[in-house]
Design a protein around this nucleic acid. Structure first.
Lengths: 244, 244
DNA sequence: CGGAGAGTTGAGAAACCTCAAAGCAGGTGG
DNA sequence: CCACCTGCTTTGAGGTTTCTCAACTCTCCG
């Protein structure tokens, strides 16, 4: 749950033609290299809200970057239980779990109308062999995803409901802030059930925690719109509850 | 928590000189390529039980493979809480979370006397550019680690204690079996506290579940030695408890 | 033989879940 | 434009699981 250290403005300046995603970020790529990368990334898809980008089990030959909109990834257990594994906003990548198996292990669904660009593995790997900077950068991104997942395990394994939700809100705030949006006022794109699934809680617990945060004066919640009133005290919730 | 699909015998035959780890596994590398890989992988380290391979924050320029022994990885929260993120046995890789940041994000400690071989990123990336098969294979491994982490999230987010521990035991059984050891009788290398931290439970809960499994006739537990008596019923515990 | 670390077990407390009812918002069709 | 319907959200009450605290046992070593 470490915030992804991406400054959207850096990103924009580094990559004006292509899809404004993590992959063509700091990298130190020259114009010619960026152009080559751009060609590879040119496959685009538009999704309506509720439409799947891919489903578990389907064939996979690409990773995806969010150009516009908001995505949710989840894994499905045999017995029907679902675990949300992540939410993906502008510039973020998804589908890195399926390079290994050539089949998707997750579902990915659009939570609002979303534009996606597609980056075929084969092209990415071919390009990486020519461009060490890109290669290193791609490895960094996958590695960061792993480190991020460890953060989520820490959250799921050792935090209480209150701390989980505070972490979640602050993480969204940070990611929106670094993209130039307000870090204190934003709209959630997902349901309470989605949040609960991601945080290992039931939707009622999520709802109760939102209410408690509101009555404690930390945030204002009105349906899906969040307004962070007292950022310092919200931050102070992290690492407070449960010393074990 | 999907089992890692590695057959140790395949592995052994594919890679007789080097360190018998995942990296030089199916790959389809020829002898010359294997030799080049072998040179890179030649850095070795031996650890005594209780010794750290690396600690969070220290500089990182390599990934590591277990040649012999047993390792534990964990992330540390600011307030001292610890979350075990994985256990690593013969042939498995660790340290892939730290390629991105050049600093380790985890601690890695030896749970018994362990030999490790070190694979510097730079060498691996250089070699990958020459050897597409290795490149693809390395990406597969990182990708599988991500998919595996999603499985752990599912476990932590939506399973009850009983199911978590059953999953854990079956996962160990599977990994030991694929390495030629008995899948039904084995010794745990970690404490109840380690297991609890990995599974998001307290050590007392782990202990109680072991006792319950034993009195239900599923396994025999004597300290750290486990004997699986009724594999089918142990498997049946998965996906049974909690339909939500 | 003693000590330290690890594991077991019990009792009570706390956190979270389940079930249930009611309120709201947003979209659709008449 | 309104009424209705559906899906989402909130809130309460009671139940379950897991945690906490504590005492005791066991095992391994020196």
């Amino acid at each position: 749950m470490q915030p992804i250290p991406v400054n959207f403005f850096q990103l924009r300046s580094a990559c004006s033609t292509c899809s404004l995603h993590e992959l063509c970020l700091p990298a130190g790529l020259d114009t010619k290299e960026l152009t080559r990368l751009d060609v590879v990334v040119s496959g685009k898809r538009s999704l309506k809200r509720g439409q799947y980008l891919y489903r578990a089990g389907s064939a996979s030959r690409a990773i995806y970057a969010v150009r516009r909109g908001f995505m949710r990834s989840s894994v499905l257990h045999d017995d029907g239980r679902e675990q949300v594994t992540g939410f993906h906003m502008l510039g973020e990548l998804l589908g890195m779990d399926s390079i290994g198996s050539a089949k998707h292990t997750c579902d990915a669904i659009a939570l609002e109308d979303t534009d996606i660009c597609e980056i075929p593995f084969d092209d990415l790997e071919r390009l990486s062999r020519d461009m060490p900077t890109l290669q290193r950068h791609f490895h960094n991104i996958m590695s960061r995803e792993i480190a991020h997942d460890y953060g989520v395990m820490l959250l799921l394994g050792s935090m209480r409901a209150e701390e989980r939700l505070a972490t979640f809100i602050l993480n969204l705030s940070q990611r929106l802030g670094s993209r130039g949006y307000s870090p204190t006022r934003f709209n959630l794109r997902m349901t309470r059930d989605d949040i609960g699934s991601y945080l290992g809680l039931k939707l009622e617990t999520v709802s109760r925690m939102f209410s408690r945060f509101q009555s404690d004066g930390l945030i204002t919640v009105k349906n899906r719109s969040i307004d962070i009133i007292d950022m310092p005290r919200l931050r102070a919730l992290l690492g407070q509850c449960g010393t074990s």
